[in-house]
């Protein structure tokens, strides 16, 4: 399928990328292109200008923060995350989950920031970043702001990143003996998600984020024993969508199952 005519710019700095995004009404950031290109083929998106972030090395860095946390550049590819020693040392769950996204070719170009900003309800990283308490740094013409994950995901395909703005990095707090887990049921191995759950457990308390059951990740707090997790999910009064892959009832059932599995993984 041919794409509709579009203009293309390759900024040489992050500041220039933000200027370009702000200067053109129909401008859109092009990260790995593993979602956007296909959405453009289907004419579900019709940007006037693509601002290609691929040349911006400053958006690719993965590093540890001085207080023991982790910083992921928005343009780090999923493959880079799976191989990063910094990720392995601090939040190995991120590498584990990134390695389950789609397939090798897609992970070679697909980025952390792209997965988060597309905020497709079937994506793995929005619930994971929610459970881990990540903070997103957004840059715009008026400067930088830090948005916690809980305020970042606004609706299906929409986030706190406004037109003219750019997600530059994702910051994970130091773990302080916190342990993480993730579980999902997908269509085929590493396929499209039916329901997923991420959990982060500390001192018998779990932060759980459920994906694919609502427009945005559903964040729950619970004690980490199985009965408590099950009743927390039941108490959330979820109203998940039905589609050809799973009925609402089945998703509701799975939400409990994957939440228990994610918490169990985080507790071992």
């Amino acid at each position: 399928m041919l794409l509709a005519p579009v203009e293309y710019a390759r900024p040489s700095s992050v500041a220039e990328a933000v200027r370009l995004l702000g200067a053109h009404d129909g401008a859109r950031a092009l990260a790995g292109g593993q979602t956007l290109t296909n959405v453009m083929k289907a004419r579900a998106a019709a940007p006037d200008v693509l601002v290609d972030l691929n040349g911006l090395a400053e958006l690719r860095a993965i590093s540890r923060t001085s207080d023991g946390g982790l910083e992921l550049g928005a343009m780090a590819t999923l493959t880079e995350v799976t191989r990063s020693s910094e990720v392995a040392e601090t939040r190995p769950i991120i590498a584990q989950v990134a390695s389950q996204i789609a397939d090798l070719q897609v992970r070679n170009r697909g980025t952390v920031g792209g997965n988060i900003c597309s905020n497709d309800p079937t994506n793995h990283l929005p619930p994971l970043m929610s459970a881990l308490g990540a903070t997103m740094t957004i840059l715009g013409a008026d400067g930088e702001r830090a948005v916690p994950a809980v305020d970042f995901f606004l609706g299906v395909y929409t986030t706190a990143v406004a037109p003219g703005e750019l997600l530059t990095k994702i910051t994970l707090p130091a773990t302080h003996d916190r342990r993480d887990g993730f579980a999902s049921v997908t269509i085929g191995k590493d396929g499209t998600c039916i329901v997923n759950a991420a959990a982060s457990v500390h001192d018998g308390q779990a932060a759980i984020a459920l994906g694919c059951v609502a427009a945005v990740p559903v964040l729950l707090a619970s004690a980490s024993d199985e009965d408590a997790v099950r009743s927390a999910v039941r108490g959330a009064k979820l109203d998940p969508p039905s589609d050809v892959h799973a009925s609402a009832e089945y998703r509701l059932h799975l939400a409990e199952v994957v939440a228990v599995r994610a918490v169990a993984e985080a507790s071992t």
Partner: peptide
């Protein structure tokens, strides 16, 4: 459509020629 670009396997239907 898989090809190898600068040593990395990619799907060439999801990359622009200008890239």
């Amino acid at each position: 459509c898989t090809v190898i670009v600068d040593g990395v396997a990619v799907k060439s239907c999801m990359m622009l020629a200008v890239q």
